[in-house]
Design a protein around this nucleic acid. Structure first.
Length: 431
RNA sequence: GGUGAGGUUCCCGAGUGGCCAAAGGGAUCAGACUGUAAAUCUGACGCGCGAGCUUCGGUGGUUCGAAUCCACCCCUCACCA
């Protein structure tokens, strides 16, 4: 049973590295194991990059293993230098502890705590590092780490070699803290496996060594690959920044749209990474898409599956409602209630203040609304007839005519204006 | 503490007295072509509808004129102590 889990992960391309495959396979087959994955509070929400290891935890739990989500209340105060180009700015303890709570609850929504034989645990490494004494740390932990080995790690090499960069002792010590976590979880909960992103390999290995030296325990590590896109650009970023799991930071609609825009070259890989659809079914989808003309179905399936996973059925429904209304090109069928709902569902919207419309150019109006980062981009769009208000195109000449455009008689239901800039950016104005 | 090298518009990186809102590349945005994809081509890319306004670590100074010269300061890195 457990052996098939590793095989499935492998088939999905979810394994970047692992410690001795045969022994790990054997270990998993021998019974249910306790495993952990750490999430550092580097912001007030997790983002897409965290989703893959988080879902792998879920995959393990579904197979009967016991997952521990470790929130890095301590490590978050230090900052992981692994493969980071520059030293990080330290955050204050207040901020970090606030983030810890948010991350804790986010992580929790993907794991089962009740009604199963292997309930998940959420831990915080501040619990065992917060009160630690410096001398204890240096004697009991530091003694087990070789600076030679640490310096030779690939994850810090580029920092050491790079001109204009460097690494502080603080960040250099990060690996020790993470190593301590593994050893501690091994003692407390019998945790024998750590998973993480492939950038965590060095840190994980450090923890394996420490567990062996301190506890005489054999423990294992497994990393998931770094998610890359076929075109070489960074995954998980949009023009608005990172794609967050928190619906208050990235609305379910935007989240859904992010996945809809996945390139063909990536979409099947992402189906394997981000959904629980069986690998065979994904191959089936790929075969069907190859045979059909035009638009593949994979993006829609991916968007649906992941949105449901992160935002639930209600979030998915809302996202699809907006998507259908905006991209069908036919908004005439929208009822007054539909318009009200769109704003609630996460379509960006704002109220027109009316008073200064005569004075305000469209460029200002639309860039303030968030349709573009500056007036220049709006102007560019106007020049190309790429600005539509309730389906009507406007040009540069109309820039100063906001008062004539946004009148009550031209509004849908005397209240609503659906503004579109370019092909994908929508905004709802209300009178 | 000493010595050396640096800090340029989102990033990388040119620019060493006027021709500089500042080369080039990347990222990003828009248009064409498409399928809300990729690739390609076109345009935009400090702010401003515009006249114009504000930038090149900071503060002062030299000059008709400074990202460029001078002084002091701040910060980063490397090597040495």
């Amino acid at each position: 049973m457990s052996a098939t889990l590793l095989q499935d992960l492998k088939a999905r391309g979810l394994i970047a590295q692992m410690t001795s495959e045969d022994e790990l396979e054997q270990h998993l087959a021998n019974g249910n194991v306790t495993l952990y994955c750490g999430f550092d509070p580097t912001a007030d929400s997790l983002h897409l990059g965290h989703l893959v290891p988080l879902l792998v935890l879920t995959r393990f739990q579904d197979e009967g293993h016991k997952p521990i989500a470790l929130v890095g209340g301590a490590t978050g105060l230090i900052g992981d230098p692994s493969f980071k180009a520059a030293e990080r700015q330290l955050n204050t303890p207040d901020i970090v502890s606030g983030w810890v709570e948010k991350i804790r609850s986010q992580v929790s929504q993907f794991l089962k705590f009740e009604g199963v034989e292997n309930p998940a645990i959420v831990a915080n490494n501040l619990d065992w590092t917060g009160d630690m004494n410096v001398l204890d740390f240096l004697r009991n932990i530091g003694k087990h780490f070789s600076v030679n080995a640490m310096i030779n790690k690939e994850s810090v090499q580029q920092r050491l070699n790079r001109d204009g960069a460097g690494i502080s002792f603080t960040e250099f010590s990060y690996a020790l803290l993470q190593g301590m976590d593994f050893a501690e979880l091994n003692r407390r909960h019998g945790c024998t496996l750590q998973i993480g992103g492939s950038d965590q390999w060095g840190n994980i290995v450090g923890g394996i060594d420490l567990s062996r030296r301190q506890n005489g325990a054999q423990v294992f590590g497994l990393t998931v690959p770094l998610i890359t896109k076929a075109d070489g650009t960074k995954f998980g970023k949009t023009e608005a920044g990172a794609v967050w799991l928190d619906p208050a930071k990235t609305s379910p609609y935007n989240f859904f749209q992010f996945w809809m825009n996945t390139a063909d070259a990536d979409v099947y890989k992402f189906l394997n990474y981000f959904t629980f659809l069986p690998a065979e079914q994904i191959q089936q989808i790929e075969r069907e898409d190859a045979e059909r003309e035009g638009r593949p179905q994979a993006q829609a399936i991916l968007a649906e599956e992941v949105t449901r996973l992160v935002h639930g059925e209600a979030g998915l429904t809302a996202a699809k409602r907006i998507t259908e209304a905006l991209f069908s090109g036919d908004t005439s069928s929208l009822s007054e209630q539909d318009y009200e709902q769109l704003a609630l569902d996460g379509l960006p919207s704002s109220a027109l203040s009316g008073a200064d419309l005569a004075e305000t150019p469209l460029t200002t109006l639309l860039s303030d609304a968030g349709l573009a980062p500056g007036g220049k981009q709006v102007k560019d769009a106007l020049q190309r007839n790429a600005v539509l208000v309730n389906g009507q195109a406007y040009g540069v000449d109309d820039n100063m005519r906001a008062a004539e455009i946004f009148t009550q008689t031209q509004a849908k239901y005397q209240k609503y204006f659906l503004v579109k800039l370019g092909k994908k950016k929508h905004h709802l104005f209300t009178l």
